Computed example of a mutant assay.
Amino acid sequence: MKILLAGDSTVAACPSFEYPMSGWGAHLAPETYWWAAVHNYAKGGATTESFREEGLWHQLLHQAVQGDLVLIQFGHNDQKRDHLAARTGYAENPRRMVAEVRSKGGIPILCTSVERRHFELGVLQETLGEFPAVVRELGGEFGLEVIDLNTWTRALYQELGEEGSKELFFHFAPGEHAHWAGGLEDNTHFHEKGARMIAAHVAGQLESLGYGLASSVRAGASA
């Protein structure tokens, strides 16, 4: 079994000069141990449309075989394009992706987008509009498993609080990072610490859905 990832920068592996900025997909392989190889096709700035146009979806599908898991998480950048509104242009693209994964014998799993860290007067705001709800609805429509990262990350930020949740994100004071000499307060992209926490949660969700180590051992024993 392989795990193939489609998504944007919150999933992608970041270039080395941006370290310790990271998407959660970059840390999923250690969390799954030996039972599945992880192939991360996610790219910063990607939408459900550009991911296909740039050939990344074709590359992913070319690698997919019977029984592979394909995790799909988009929304942050689709949200910025009027023609990719949640219930119109955007919704059609995951529908097509799901159909194509199933045609290869793969197992599509939808993920709601991780929430941005945006507090106002101490209250965490919802920044992704209808996108998470649409993903949940698509899961019901197609009988798919959905890993609800939006709900989980929202709960995590609220538990840690406005100040504590900063540690999950890419915050640097002036002079602390060579690439952002003037400092940076990024509440969308994760510090490696935050990315690892999300990857561990995704791995746990896959295990609870029956796609973890135990199921891999059972499959090998019956082969």
Rank of each mutant, 00 (worst) to 15 (best):
N187A: 06
E145C: 09
N93Y: 08
P132E: 10
R116M: 00
H179C: 05
E145P: 03
W24K: 00
G25D: 00
E185R: 13
G164L: 08
N150A: 07
L128D: 00
F142T: 02
E185Q: 12
S16M: 07
V135L: 05
L184N: 07
A133N: 08
V123C: 07
E163S: 14
L149C: 15
R117K: 13
G122T: 07
G55C: 11
F142S: 10
T112P: 09
D78L: 14
A195G: 10
G143Q: 13
A181L: 11
P30H: 14
A200C: 08
K166F: 14
A6R: 01
L4K: 06
A99V: 06
H27T: 01
G75P: 09
E145W: 11
I3P: 01
G122N: 13
S222K: 13
E53V: 12
F169W: 12
V38K: 00
S9G: 09
F17P: 04
A12C: 05
I147Q: 05
H62Q: 11
E31S: 12
G175M: 06
E141I: 05
Y33Q: 07
A85R: 03
N93G: 05
R196T: 03
G139N: 04
T153G: 08
A221Q: 15
L84A: 09
H58D: 10
G75H: 11
V146K: 13
G25W: 01
A221P: 06
G143C: 14
E31F: 07
Q79E: 11
H171C: 04
A214V: 12
H58G: 11
H179S: 13
Q79R: 06
A91T: 00
D186E: 14
G45A: 01
N93Q: 14
A223T: 07
L213I: 08
E141S: 14
A37H: 12
P94K: 02
C14I: 03
A6C: 15
K2H: 10
G182N: 13
V101K: 02
E18C: 08
A29M: 14
K104C: 13
L71N: 04
A42E: 01
N40C: 09
F170G: 01
V202D: 02
W152Y: 13
V217T: 06
L209F: 15
S208H: 15
T188E: 00
E185H: 13
L71M: 15
G106N: 05
P174M: 07
L124I: 07
V114A: 09
P108T: 02
L156R: 10
E92L: 10
Y211D: 00
E92I: 01
G45S: 05
K104V: 07
V134C: 01
G129C: 10
H76Q: 06
G89D: 12
K166Q: 12
L213A: 11
L168Y: 08
G45Y: 09
A200N: 08
G161V: 12
